[in-house]
């Protein structure tokens, strides 16, 4: 059941949808008076998740739908991202060694590392209908604007 105050939006599985995704996150954060620093983190994390799904989540060239549901209460922001692609768990990607010297650093793999570190919890579920990622950002009371 959709709780009051949730925001749900569907996006085409294309990077061209990113400006709208950012706009939706921005509208959600503003309307719920979420601290802009927290808003920045969930915006960035959601872009990384979305980009990963668009790039690696589908086995064909068809345009799919990616559903994003944003919920917020006093304690946390919960974001649910659903797609109908092949089994794809970004949390299984190799961890980036951020302390490695330059010669060993590669541009890839940073996205999911940022997601894990910017948020408090990231969960993956494989469902009949596809993949579901649940992203949690906790809100300390003092972090919410009054």
């Amino acid at each position: 059941m959709k709780a009051e105050g949730d925001l749900e939006a569907r996006f085409a599985s294309s990077l061209a949808a990113l400006p709208r995704l950012h706009a939706v996150v921005d509208r959600f954060c503003r309307s719920r008076a979420i601290d802009p620093d927290i808003g920045f983190k969930i915006d960035l994390a959601l872009e990384e998740v979305f980009t990963n799904i668009v790039r690696y989540g589908f086995a064909d060239d068809r345009t799919h739908q990616i559903a994003v549901r944003l919920q917020c209460d006093r304690h946390r922001i919960r974001i649910q991202v659903d797609d109908d692609g092949r089994r794809f768990n970004p949390l299984l990607a190799p961890q980036v060694d951020t302390g490695a010297p330059l010669a060993e650093r590669r541009p890839g793999g940073l996205g999911i590392h940022l997601v894990r570190r910017l948020l408090d919890e990231v969960r993956y579920q494989r469902r009949k209908s596809g993949n579901r990622l649940i992203l949690i950002k906790r809100l300390a009371e003092e972090e919410k604007r009054t």
Binding site: E47, E48, L102, P107, G108, L110, G111, H113, L114
Partner: peptide, 19 residues
């Protein structure tokens, strides 16, 4: 105002080229 992993990757490439 904002940079994600793809932009960071681009800076990493620049650093490698300069070094």
């Amino acid at each position: 105002e904002y940079i994600g992993s793809a932009g960071l990757g681009a800076l990493l490439i620049l650093l490698k080229l300069i070094r």
